[in-house]
């Protein structure tokens, strides 16, 4: 982001004919070891267990053929959890590109109590997610939650809602938690703002543009690199946000807020003979993740060539 990419060396390195593959092998060895253990072995292991019915003891494994896959792909809850994953990712991206951008920009304009504001806005992102989500869950219960109690106390009792038992509201709650986790985007924007070229800002000021127009039309477009970094990191991270749902709505009500992480987690922690099924889910998720990565590469590649 703050690195302006230098022009590629026009001349090929003189040594480029010589292949460094032996050296490369040494440098890549740690990577191969980690990938070998955690990805290649994993995929093989998953593929072989995914056609069985077995518990986590791996005793008495029963071969069930494709049954796990069939069950999985016809399970509406699994499909919904995939869709939810995508929706939550989109929501957190929108929040990052708007709210986080606004907060970072506003705080960069020299407001008072800036440190306090930073503290408040960055805090949720630097705490364990399980902590944030747990607090949300308990704060939102209908009868005893502090939110409804506060609303009733200040005469807004009509706004008190069954936040966690209405599917629509519960979905919104999870979405809001994702919006609370925009600390990292705020930091990225803050950092980029401090390196902003001044000239265009001054030109805009001379034009007499208003604050929000400058934010929207001048600063926002200048941060394209940061936007891309943020979108990518949120997109890639979206599959990893198990805790947000697990500790707030637990996937409910009626599994309406389930995401892939909680779906797998539920089966994986059951202690029953569900490990074969979990492996099948894992395989499908891996395939999707790989496709997502390929898409990311395809999307970002042409832009590089145009530079």
């Amino acid at each position: 982001m703050t690195i302006r990419e230098q022009p590629r060396p026009v001349l090929k390195r003189r040594t480029s004919r010589r292949s460094d593959w032996k050296v490369a092998l040494v440098f890549l060895l740690p990577l191969f070891v980690m990938y070998g253990i955690y990805y290649l072995y994993s995929i093989g292991f998953l593929a072989s267990t995914s056609t069985t019915k077995v518990s986590v003891t791996f005793f008495n494994s029963i071969d069930v053929g494709w049954r796990n896959y069939v069950q999985l792909l016809t399970d509406p809850v699994f499909i919904r959890s995939m869709v939810n994953n995508v929706l939550f990712a989109c929501i957190s991206i929108v929040a990052a590109l708007t709210v986080a951008f606004f907060i970072a920009t506003a705080l960069a304009t020299g407001v008072r109590a800036k440190r306090l504001f930073y503290l408040i806005f960055l805090l949720p992102a630097l705490m364990p997610l399980s902590l944030v989500a747990t607090i949300f869950g308990s704060m939102l219960t209908e009868r005893t939650g502090v939110l409804n109690e506060t609303l009733r106390a200040i005469g807004l009792g009509a706004l008190a809602q069954p936040w966690l038992t209405q599917p629509g509201l519960a979905f919104a709650v999870v979405a809001v938690i994702f919006c609370y986790l925009i600390g990292l985007p705020i930091m990225y924007y803050t950092a980029d703002l401090s390196a902003l070229p001044t000239e265009s800002l001054e030109a805009a000021l001379l034009d007499g543009a208003g604050t929000f127009r400058i934010m929207r039309s001048i600063i926002y477009p200048m941060m394209r690199g940061t936007h891309i970094t943020i979108v990518l990191s949120l997109l890639l991270g979206s599959f990893r946000s198990l805790e947000v749902v697990l500790f707030s709505t637990r996937g409910g009500p009626g599994q309406s807020t389930e995401i892939v992480g909680t779906y797998i987690y539920g089966f994986a922690t059951s202690g029953g003979p569900t490990i074969g099924f979990v492996s099948a889910v894992s395989i499908i998720v891996l395939v999707i993740a790989l496709v997502l990565s390929i898409a990311q590469m395809v999307i970002t590649r042409p832009r590089k060539d145009m530079r």
Binding site: G252, P253, T274
Partner: peptide, 21 residues
């Protein structure tokens, strides 16, 4: 109990109470 099945069936029970099933 069949704990894992219980946990799953429980989600349907809650939906029945909420009138969504």
């Amino acid at each position: 109990n069949l704990s894992n099945l219980s946990a799953q069936v429980g989600t349907y029970i809650l939906q029945v109470v909420n009138g969504t099933m």
